[in-house]
């Protein structure tokens, strides 16, 4: 499906989604409460079939956090980017690791570095850092006077 067709189809399916222009992929924002049902639709809806979640990450925008999901279909070879804005003080979002199994590790990584809580995640622990680590290093306001070298 071309980007244009995809966009029409997605607008039809998720009327509340807001699209962002620019970039090579279709970008759209969705509310955290709708993310889980949206993810199910994206995976299962014939014609969309986004079965391959190839990149999950989080970006700290200082006022809020944004979860970024890069999705692709191994059948139709089209890709999209779904973004979800989260409250920075209490970031919470539903897990999608029952839909795409790869999400389990990627979500643990996002929890480790950004402190995003994934509701219903089977094993939400720190992945890279030690369990007693304080703070979330990839947030913009994180400061570590010992390990961080500033030039």
């Amino acid at each position: 499906m071309t980007n244009e067709d995809l966009k029409n189809k997605l607008t039809e399916l998720f009327p509340s989604a807001t699209f962002e222009e620019g970039g090579e992929f279709i970008n759209f924002f969705i509310e955290p409460s709708q993310w889980k049902s949206c993810a199910k639709e994206l995976k299962e809806k014939a014609g969309l079939d986004f079965d391959y979640l190839f990149c999950v990450t989080c970006v700290d925008w200082k006022t809020h956090l944004t979860m970024v999901y890069h999705l692709s279909s191994t059948i139709h070879r089209h890709s999209i980017v779904v973004k979800v804005k989260l409250n920075r003080d209490q970031p919470e979002i539903d897990t999608v690791c029952d839909i795409w199994k790869t999400a389990e590790f990627h979500e643990r990584e996002a929890f480790d570095f950004f402190g995003v809580t994934f509701i219903n995640h089977p094993d939400l622990r720190r992945l890279f850092l030690t369990d007693d680590w304080v703070g979330f290093p990839l947030r913009k306001d994180y400061d570590d006077p010992i390990n961080m070298i500033k030039l």
Partner: peptide, 16 residues
Amino acid sequence: PYRIKYRSPGFSNLSA
């Protein structure tokens, strides 16, 4: 860069 993410192949392969 404001943010860089590397999607490393080994990370996803290990999860299997």
